[in-house]
């Protein structure tokens, strides 16, 4: 595998064990700017563990994670976010008591270091920026609706807009299409792919829906029992006998 010097995310020899069980062993891969990379594998293969080590929620036992050339192992998720990392979650996490616009404004306020203000009205700050982001993900017409009443697919779009608020160089998406209907999945991933390419963002996502993976990923990393067993463009991965045996089965 070649790791280009210019890769935004470079993971090398990452390892983590829980109570003697090796969840991730010596995993290495890279994601370049403008590229969508899918991480797939059976349940318990170590995808989530891997993911959480990249975003800082878990500390690896050994190995290195470099984002934009900066070593992030040992940094808190908050500090990693400051380096320009946007995240979306498998189960959407938004602020239910606020409107769509306010949700995005929160991310912008944080990005612009304005959270310490006790006097100004938050609703008046970064309105236009919030609207621009919402327009980009197709949510401008729902900006004033409370997040608590949105359809699930729309919440995913709000999350995406929030993840873009800090002008990220890296986007981490945990099962971005989980819980969505097939057509919505394709739509959301097409939107994501467009944004990733136009803004030259490196994107890493985990996914169970192979239709989504094979339709949109530029490269695929396959994990099994904590190890990377295959890595490459979709056709290579699809043709890989080991991948077919442990994960894909006969259908794909």
């Amino acid at each position: 595998m070649t790791i280009l010097r210019g890769s935004v995310l470079v993971v090398s020899a990452l390892a983590k064990s829980f109570g003697g069980v090796q969840a991730v062993r010596e995993a290495s891969f890279a994601v370049e700017a403008g590229q969508l990379v899918a991480m797939i594998g059976p349940n318990g293969a170590g995808k989530t563990t891997c993911f959480n080590m990249v975003n800082g929620q878990l500390r690896p036992d050994s190995g290195s994670v470099r984002i934009g050339g900066v070593e992030v192992v040992g940094r808190a998720p908050r500090q990693i976010w400051r380096l320009g990392v946007g995240r979306t979650f498998q189960i959407t996490a938004t602020f239910a008591s606020m409107t769509v616009r306010e949700n995005v404004q929160m991310a912008l306020l944080s990005y612009h270091h304005r959270l310490a203000s006790w006097w100004l009205r938050a609703a008046h700050l970064y309105r236009e920026e919030a609207h621009a982001l919402l327009a980009r993900v197709g949510m401008a017409d729902q900006a004033e609706r409370p997040c608590s009443v949105l359809a699930y697919g729309d919440l995913k779009r709000v999350e995406l807009a929030m993840a873009l608020a800090n002008a990220p160089q890296l986007l981490l998406m945990d099962e971005p299409t989980a819980g969505m209907a097939p057509a919505e999945r394709i739509e959301l991933m097409a939107l994501t792919a467009d944004i990733v390419r136009e803004r030259r963002i490196a994107a890493l996502f985990t996914e169970h829906d192979m239709d989504v993976v094979f339709a949109h990923a530029d490269r695929i990393v396959v994990l099994n029992r904590g190890s990377v067993i295959a890595e490459g463009v979709p056709d290579e991965v699809r043709a890989n006998a080991q991948v077919r045996q442990v994960y894909l089965g006969s259908r794909h």
Partner: peptide, 28 residues
Amino acid sequence: RRIVYSPYGCALRAGRDSPLRCDAIGID
């Protein structure tokens, strides 16, 4: 009451609604 609607107050509400998301948008 004024503080509730300030950026600071909103950040507190954000924390109540979703600590996970706060973490992901850099809110301490």
